[in-house]
């Protein structure tokens, strides 16, 4: 029993300590961003590895998610003779929820895990300490550009996901299942509001990009510098990102769409 209490206290203390380290890390990273802006080459390189390399998985997944929504939506809506509402259903579910959330989950798996492994290995091979020895702040030089790149790429990836998903829904709904083309777009345009739906979706993806980049970089930076430690940190990145994205999505949806 005493052992249990001891362990409980230890776990609580260490998790608070980790949260504290993560917060310091974040503020350090954010102040480092001002040093990144005069050197856009650092940023471009990271946007390439974080954003461009995620481009393919995001677009292909978006296409298939949109096509599945088109098929499933058609099956259900045709029972009520409301196939024309297919456009609204596909667009609303992609722009409001699936676009930001699924692309954030894919982003965590594709880019987040790579970031954690990269930073963790840099730590394990003492590259970060080497930089410190040369009086180069590793957070400003290594972490901040990656953070900014993740933060900027996420909304673009989510927008791509939604746009391609809608095209996929159109392909299946209008091209294969014979929904009227005009009604598909007209009903969509009548129901999707620019501010309420699209801007809120972008806000969601900005928040997710911030959180996923933060978690990925911090887990790498905080990893135990062994091969096992890095592998655990990578796992934690994906698990914690998925958990945070889904929990935050609920909170953001309640704030944006639920009249609480």
């Amino acid at each position: 029993m005493l052992q249990f209490l001891q362990n409980l206290g230890k776990t609580t203390r260490s998790s608070f300590a980790k949260l504290g380290r993560a917060s310091f890390f974040l503020s350090h990273t954010l102040t480092g961003i001002s040093d990144v802006l005069p050197r856009p080459n650092l940023l471009i390189k990271q946007v390439y590895s974080v954003g461009v390399l995620s481009f393919l998985i995001i677009t292909i997944s978006g296409l298939f998610v949109g096509m599945v929504l088109g098929l499933q939506g058609f099956n259900i809506l045709s029972d009520f003779g409301a196939e024309e509402s297919l456009g609204v259903m596909v667009a609303a579910s992609l722009v409001r929820e699936l676009g930001p959330v699924v692309s954030a989950l894919l982003f965590a798996g594709r880019a987040g895990s790579a970031l954690t492994a990269e930073i963790g290995l840099m730590k394990a091979t003492e590259q970060l300490s080497g930089m410190e020895m040369m009086a180069v702040d590793p957070i400003k030089r290594i972490i901040s550009p990656r953070f900014l790149a993740g933060f900027l790429s996420m909304p673009l990836l989510a927008a791509l996901f939604s746009a391609i998903g809608i095209m996929g829904g159109h392909l299946v709904g209008v091209g294969m299942l014979g929904v009227d083309d005009g009604a598909f777009w007209a009903q969509m345009q009548a129901s999707i509001d620019f501010q309420e739906d699209i801007i809120n979706g972008v806000i969601k993806s900005v928040v997710f990009g911030f959180v996923v980049s933060w978690i990925a970089l911090f887990e790498g930076y905080d990893a135990i510098p062994t091969s096992e430690g890095v592998s655990r940190a990578t796992t934690r990145t994906v698990v914690n990102s998925a958990f945070s994205v889904l929990a935050l999505d609920f909170i953001l949806t309640a704030l944006m769409f639920g009249d609480i």
């Binding site: 790429s153 673009l156 990836l157 927008a159 746009a163 809608i166 620019f194 699209i198």
Partner: peptide, 15 residues
Amino acid sequence: SGIAALFYMALQVSN
């Protein structure tokens, strides 16, 4: 392409 997707959604999808 990301910005184009945003414009596409603003003009083609929304009101």
